[in-house]
Structures are given as C-alpha cells and as structure tokens.
C-alpha cells in the first residue's frame, strides 16, 4: 500500500521521527487524570415482569409508523404474502437460509430472486421488496437488529429495496437494550432498525422514507 496509508507513519512537525501516534499518546500521558471512584450501574436492564413483552414490542414498532402483523406458525406464510401484497411488491429478494415455509403463501404475481450468486447493487435497486428474519428484537424501543446471519443476508439486501418485511419470532424479543447487547456478537455487521427511514430536516416536519426502505412491515410470530 502507498506510503501515506501505513498507520502511524505520517510525520509533520514535532520531534524528528516522532509519529503522530507517539505524539498524541505522549500528550495524553503528560497529564494524570484520576479515574472515577466507581461506575454506578443503577439503571434498568430488564422490563418489569408485568409487562407483556410482545405487546410492548408491537406497540412501540407501530409508533414509528411501521406496519405490525401478529401471526402464528400456522398462518405465517399467509401473513407474509398479505404484507407483500399490501405493499404492491412484484419482485422479492430472498436471502440465503430463509426458511422456505415462510414463502409458500406467495402467489405467482411475485418474482423471486436469490442473492446467490450475489446480485449487483443496480439489480438490487430494481427489486421491490426484501424479506428477512432478524437476530434479536427489543420491546422497549421497538427495534429489530439484523446481524447478516442466515435468513438475513448481507447488509445491502435490506437497504436498497424500498419495502422490507421482517419476521420476528417471539423468543427473539427481549425487553431492554441491555438484554439485546448480551445476545449480539459485535464481530458481525449489525444494523439496528427502529421503524422506516425518516427525516425531520425540513422544518422538523417528519417524513417517513428517504434513503432506506420507506415501508417496514414487522411480522411477529407467536
């Protein structure tokens, strides 16, 4: 790699041969900062047992103006088909590892595309919808978290199509952010999604949908 790209090798000013890294660390080490006495962690890390977690999750997702569907394992395929139809989707990209029985309700009106071999970004941009599972979901904040695992695919899949249908199994829903973090692997690429893409940049008037999927359907199973 070219000279300027090597870490810590750029030298401007300072002692001869001193790297920026050495200089910055030396400046910090020149000042002794006492550590805090303790880090108090007296905040809540789970919801009260009286809270119906699935109910709370459904309510909080709906607050973001996403569409929430409750399903059972018996009618999941029909619910998925209905959600896609409701959004007018005519083409659908399917990530590797997505359970085949989620899709048995789809009619012939929807063209299915696999991402194996990987589609180009141009191809993905032309597809109407994506369906994924998730890694974990958080009731308190109405959040779903994708970790690019089986049934979720690489990050671009849930980004370029304008409609995202996400299936969440009951056992994947936790109460608080703290519980979600404990279940996640930080070494995987993670996307936390709380409702559809949104902006309030124009006179603080909220508009759902700028660059990410403008339509989010969350199907809760169980």
């Amino acid at each position: 790699m070219a000279e300027p790209l090597e870490p810590g090798r750029i030298v401007t000013g300072g002692a001869p041969g001193e790297t920026a890294r050495d200089a910055v660390l030396a400046r910090i080490r020149a000042v002794a900062v006492p550590p805090p006495a303790a880090i108090p962690r007296d905040y809540l890390t789970s919801l009260s047992p009286d809270v119906d977690i699935l109910e709370r999750f459904a309510e909080r997702v709906a607050d973001y103006r996403a569409l929430v569907h409750r399903a059972t394992s018996g009618n999941l395929a029909a619910t998925v088909a209905e959600a896609l139809k409701g959004r007018g989707a005519r083409s659908l990209v399917i990530p590797a590892g997505l359970p085949a029985d989620w899709l048995i309700g789809l009619g012939p009106g929807i063209e299915r595309q696999s991402d194996d071999p990987p589609l180009t970004y141009g191809q993905l941009d032309a597809i109407d919808a994506v369906i994924t599972g998730c890694a974990v979901a958080i009731a308190e904040t109405g959040t779903i978290v994708l970790d690019a695992g089986p049934g979720q695919g690489r990050r671009a899949l849930s980004l370029l199509p304008d409609r995202h249908v996400c299936v969440v199994r009951a056992e994947q829903v936790v109460g608080e952010v703290a519980e979600a973090l404990a279940r996640l692997d930080p070494h995987r690429p993670l996307t936390w999604i709380s409702g559809p893409s949104a902006t309030s940049d124009i006179e603080l008037d909220r508009v759902e949908g700028v660059h990410g999927p403008r339509n989010l359907d969350v199907v809760i199973v169980g």
Binding site: E140, G142, P189, T191, W192, I193, A198, G212
Partner: peptide, 8 residues
C-alpha cells in the same frame, strides 16, 4: 426511543 438506523 431509538433513532431509525444504527450501523455497527
């Protein structure tokens, strides 16, 4: 409660 997207 949470911003729409967080990437890690």
């Amino acid at each position: 409660r949470m911003n729409p997207y967080t990437s890690m």
